[in-house]
Design a protein around this nucleic acid. Structure first.
Length: 877
RNA sequence: AGGCUCGUAGCUCAGUGGGAGAGCGCCUCUCUGACGCAGAGGAGGUCGGCGGUUCGAAACCGCCCGAGCCUACCA
């Protein structure tokens, strides 16, 4: 196996490795599972990306995290299912296809509903698979055989079932209510779909007969059906209940003055105009006081016939015009600059128009209460915990959910109207004729909010409403991993609907990751031009590097992560480091024999690296269980780079190149291979490709690292020999290197070193003399009776002293400086500890073990300090 | 308006009750038979400010300053 090893490239080349292994894994069926496979179930449903989407950094992150958990659990013997799929994304997709049509000079109306839908489906077949292909490049081990789409047959059935059930329970109803209307998208928007943005505006004070009031929307004056003041406002009590006949832009109008708590007497003049047709607050006031609704702005954003001479004008042009007209008529008292928040459509950023229209709603309050309770009592755990507060707040103040949308792409509302007998039918199946009169039926024109179907995702993808083996096995799912930005859109809906419809929470844990930003902390957006395409990064640095970088940056916290190519370079370098470590191992396997090696006793260095690995395994497992991806990554990084490469490989080279005996060489080979092999398994969930590639080249058991076992944490009994080795042998190497560095001596120079050990340290230092010589590049004499040679630098190892002979080379000034610095450092620490121990309250009240530790520390410092002072004196002679 | 989060080395960030850490950058030395995408050494911090709790605070509490996010019907 060594012949091949020599031909391995000295840099890790990800492209070929990734192209080879992913199809192989998929072909062998490693991603797929069945409900009846052995092992406890572990299921994650993917947050379904929009079919319109292509992979961005957010996807790269969320899917890397899911894949890490899935791969870890799969290796750990769980029956693991990662359910993939895409979302039809109503508005987004329709918008996309409409734009395509526009480029052909056509509108969706030209095509008609059926042809337009067919066109969208065609678009979906053509482009909808993009993101799914890209997820494969990420290494995502989804069960692609089970891929779903929110508008496929099964999920459509789940949607209808849900609608009918909720309707039958009286939780779905239709209402004339004021809604957020997007004049561009021609659809209603849920409150959550309206974005707020601060904008400068004019605050126009208008004279209403004897009263003056301020408004930012003078054009809605035409829809005024009343004026309102606060009930306790003494200035205006005389007008309450009166109907005023006042001059306006189009002759006189009649407005009733009402008293309502919603009015803030301290804002403006304390009087407001009530426009129930175009303002949510006014709508409520109007309902309370029986004021009529007058719609003066239409669904197209233009003034309606009810606006009289302004009919047909755009609402913003009308605003200008009406102010001019009022000014001419002397109806404007004054105009002040004003800054306030306007509502924008989350899709197209058009200013939303509040309008009264008939829409379908879900009364979600009872469902919200149940979901709220599930989080309170721990059936659902939200991480990081502070998001639970946001969740509760939302649930406590939840309002009816408007679910109808005036789109053509989506789940059409399963409601049919009979015009003959004015009956309404809600049905699981399509209805042809009126069940009561046999007359013609027409189906509701609207479709459902996209989130209505994605809210069913965790169970609809498992076969609900049927009682399938998948549903029984994999529901509730283990964890939902998603960004905090869709907590309220998506997570709350799944929690509510899952509990209500299936009777059990949809997921045990919700892990909300932070968002990905550019290196300056800016949100990535196409308009800013700061979008980083993960595919470019995958090409440039490799999938494993990107995954490792993302994992190392994400932790359950509040801070968004900033990706940068420098961080990515670090991850790529790490992959390369691992690659080269493997090259070293692979090229030194002549004579490798696991049985012969097993007979040989482990050396202390072998025991040391195994202990370090055992600790690393425990830490990585713990970190992943707690979704501390950054901890897992940094622990692995540290182990591979510092422990395995910097120390162990350097130590192992001695017995590889100049072995004391063939058995010692074989024992080292065994450790090299087995530790590396286990490390690869531990690292595999984070870096699937490189670990598989190396693992296949190493001596191993099994077909693939993907289906090998995940390393198990073991607690090893204490090993004093290892502890002494670390403190003395490794300590001596560090001390020599430290002096070399400080004295600026070339690494090529072999140093002459005398070690004067204490009685306790003598044997260990003598035992590891050659190792210290090799790693410290020194010729060493261990002599308990040694005297410090003239012109030498002093190093401290444990309680022993180490003299580096620098006669002729030494820079006495530099050495003296170094010593003085060291003395100061130790002295400061000593002083601090002494002061602490000198305070009676510390000794009396601190825990005994802490006090003991402080005493030991002080003793050590004092001894060291004395030694250093003596040494300085010697140097000055 | 309410709520949440953050302020630690030049930069990006870990650390949440017992003497400040990582990566990158910087400085010095090395071309050593896995790797220069490398090796060895080093410099650099009154942990935003002020109070409090504690034997002990970067960490816990309060206030202030600064940055950001979410939710909200102040026209």
């Amino acid at each position: 196996m060594s012949e091949g090893a020599m031909s391995i490239a000295d840099r890790y080349e990800p492209a070929a490795v990734e192209a080879r292994w992913y199809p192989e894994w998929e072909k062998r069926g490693y991603f797929h599972t069945e409900a009846d496979r052995p092992g406890p179930a572990y299921c994650i449903v993917i947050p379904p990306p929009n079919v319109t989407g292509s992979l961005h950094m957010g996807h790269a992150l969320v899917n890397t995290l899911q894949d890490i958990m899935i791969r870890m659990k799969r290796m750990d013997g769980f029956n693991t299912l990662w359910m993939p799929g895409t979302d039809h994304a109503g508005i987004a997709t329709q918008y996309m296809v409409e734009r395509q049509l526009a480029s052909e000079g056509r509108t969706k109306e030209d095509l008609g509903r059926a042809a337009f839908q067919a066109r969208v489906w065609r678009w979906k077949e053509q482009y909808g698979g993009t993101i799914i292909r890209q997820l494969r490049r990420l290494g995502a081990s989804c069960d692609w055989q089970r891929e779903r789409f929110t508008m496929d047959e099964g999920l459509s059935r789940a949607v209808r079932e849900t609608f009918v059930r909720l309707y039958d329970e009286g939780l779905i109803y239709r209402d004339d209510y004021i809604v957020n209307w997007c004049p561009r998208c021609q659809t209603v928007l849920a409150d959550l779909e309206v974005e707020r943005e601060e904008r400068d505006a004019e605050f126009v004070y208008i004279t209403y007969g004897p009263l003056v009031l301020g408004t930012v929307r003078p054009e809605t004056k035409l829809g005024d059906t009343g004026l309102a003041v606060h009930p306790g406002d003494a200035r205006y009590t005389q007008y309450v209940g009166q109907t005023l006949d006042i001059p306006s832009v189009d002759g006189n109008i009649l407005v009733k003055v009402v008293a309502d708590e919603a009015v803030d007497p301290d804002f403006g003049t304390g009087v407001i105009k009530v426009t129930p047709g175009h303002d949510p607050v006014d709508f409520e006031i109007g309902r309370r006081h029986g004021l009529p609704v007058r719609t003066v702005i239409g669904f197209d954003g233009k003034m309606t016939a009810a606006a009289g001479k302004y009919a047909g004008l755009d609402r913003f042009e009308c605003r200008k015009k009406i102010v001019e007209d009022m000014q001419a008529l002397g109806l404007i008292d004054r105009i002040e600059p004003y800054r306030h928040a306007v509502g924008l459509c989350y899709r197209c950023k058009t200013v939303v128009e509040p309008l009264v229209s008939k829409q379908w709603y879900v009364q979600v309050k009872p469902l919200a209460d149940a979901a709220d309770a599930a989080v309170h009592d721990g059936r659902i755990t939200i991480l990081p915990p502070h998001w639970a507060k946001v969740f509760h707040q939302w649930m406590e103040n939840i309002r009816p959910w408007c679910i109808s949308r005036q789109l053509w792409w989506g789940h059409r509302i399963p409601v049919w109207y009979c015009d003959a007998d004015e009956k309404v039918f809600v049905s699981r199946t399509d209805l042809g004729a009126c069940p009561s009169c046999g007359g013609a039926l027409r189906q509701d024109e609207d479709v459902l909010d996209t989130w209505f179907s994605s809210g069913l995702w965790p169970f609809s993808t498992l076969g609900w409403p049927d009682d399938t083996p998948e549903l029984r096995t994999f529901y509730p799912t283990a964890v939902l991993i998603t960004g905090y930005d869709i907590l309220l859109f998506w997570v709350v809906r799944m929690a509510m609907l899952g509990l209500h419809l299936v009777g059990e929470v949809p997921f045990r844990d919700v892990y909300l990751h932070t968002l990905v930003r550019d290196p300056e902390g800016q949100k990535m957006s196409k308009t800013k031009g700061n979008v980083v395409d993960p595919l470019d990064l995958l090409d440039k640095y490799g999938t494993d590097a990107l995954r490792f970088m993302l994992a190392s940056m994400v932790l359950p916290g509040a801070r968004d992560i900033r990706i940068s190519e420098e961080r990515l370079e670090g991850a790529r370098n790490f992959a390369n480091k691992l690659w080269n470590a493997a090259r070293l191992v692979l090229s030194n396997l002549e004579g490798y024999d696991p049985r012969a090696g097993a007979a040989a006793a482990d050396s202390v260095t072998d025991r040391w690296i195994r202990r370090r690995l055992a600790i690393t395994v425990a830490e990585v497992r713990d970190a992943l269980e707690r979704y501390r991806f950054n901890d897992a990554a940094s622990v692995l990084y540290q182990f591979v780079w510092s422990d395995y490469c910097d120390w162990y490989l350097e130590i192992a080279k001695r017995s590889l190149y100049r072995p004391e005996s063939p058995a010692a060489r074989q024992a080292t080979q065994i450790t090299l291979v087995t530790v590396l092999e286990e490390t690869l398994r531990l690292l595999h969930p984070l870096m699937p490709f490189i670990t598989e590639e190396i693992w296949q080249r190493l001596p191993h058991e099994g077909d693939s690292i993907m289906v090998a076992s995940y390393p198990t944490a073991v607690v090893l009994p204490t090993d004093e020999a290892v502890d002494r080795f670390v403190a003395l042998a490794m300590g001596a190497v560090s001390a020599i290197r430290n002096i070399r560095g400080e004295m600026r001596i070339s690494p090529g120079t072999t140093l002459s070193v005398t070690i004067r050990p204490t009685a306790a340290d003598a044997a260990v230092l003598a035992e590891h003399r050659t190792l210290i010589e090799a790693l410290g590049r020194a010729a060493i004499v261990v002599d308990p009776a040694a005297t410090r040679p003239k012109g030498s630098a002093l190093g401290i190892v444990g309680a022993s002293e180490l003299f580096v002979d620098l006669a002729g080379v030494i820079d006495v000034g530099a050495e003296r400086q170094r010593l003085q610095k060291e003395i100061k450092r130790v002295g400061d620490a000593m002083g601090f500890t002494r002061t602490k121990l000198g305070r009676p309250e510390f000794v009396e009240r601190a825990p005994a073990d802490i006090v003991d530790k402080e005493r030991e520390k002080l003793a050590e410092h004092e001894a060291l300090h004395a030694k250093l002072i003596a040494s300085l004196g010697w140097l000055s002679e």
